[in-house]
Simulated assay, not measured.
Amino acid sequence: MRIEVVQARARGYEAVTLTLPEGATVGDAVQASGLGAGPAPAGLAVFGVLATAATPLVDGDRVELLQPLQVDPKEARRRRAAKL
């Protein structure tokens, strides 16, 4: 089955398309992609839905390596409101 693994970068993103056997998990996809070798991701998702390394995949899934937030969303809104 074909799986895409995506990791956001400061400027753009990096994507790898893999062919994995049936029954593969999110952890298998991350390991096979080589994208998780740097700093540990803040989380994992499949098409934007939080997942764990044990989550099974189906053909066509997109695994996302999530990055930590740069700014708390509430704080970002306060900053924008203060500028008005």
Rank of each mutant, 00 (worst) to 15 (best):
L44N: 10
A8K: 04
T52S: 15
A32T: 01
L66V: 10
D72F: 14
A53H: 12
T52D: 15
A51L: 07
G48S: 13
L69G: 07
A54Q: 15
A82E: 13
V5H: 01
G27Y: 02
L18G: 01
E14L: 12
E22Y: 04
V30A: 01
L20T: 04
E75A: 09
P21A: 08
D72M: 10
G34V: 01
A15F: 11
D59G: 09
G34S: 01
V58F: 04
L65S: 10
A37Y: 02
K83R: 15
A29I: 07
A10W: 04
V71W: 08
T25E: 05
P21N: 03
A82Y: 11
L65K: 11
P56A: 08
R78S: 11
A45Y: 13
A76H: 10
A81N: 11
A37T: 06
E75C: 03
R77L: 06
G38N: 07
A81T: 11
A37K: 09
G38K: 09
R2L: 06
Q70V: 15
A42V: 07
V71D: 12
L65I: 12
L44C: 12
M1S: 07
P41Y: 13
L57E: 06
Q7L: 08
S33Q: 08
V16G: 00
R9K: 06
E4F: 00
R78V: 13
P39T: 13
R11V: 06
A24I: 05
L84D: 14
A45R: 09
Q70T: 15
K74G: 15
M1L: 03
A24C: 01
M1C: 04
A53Q: 14
D59V: 10
Q31A: 15
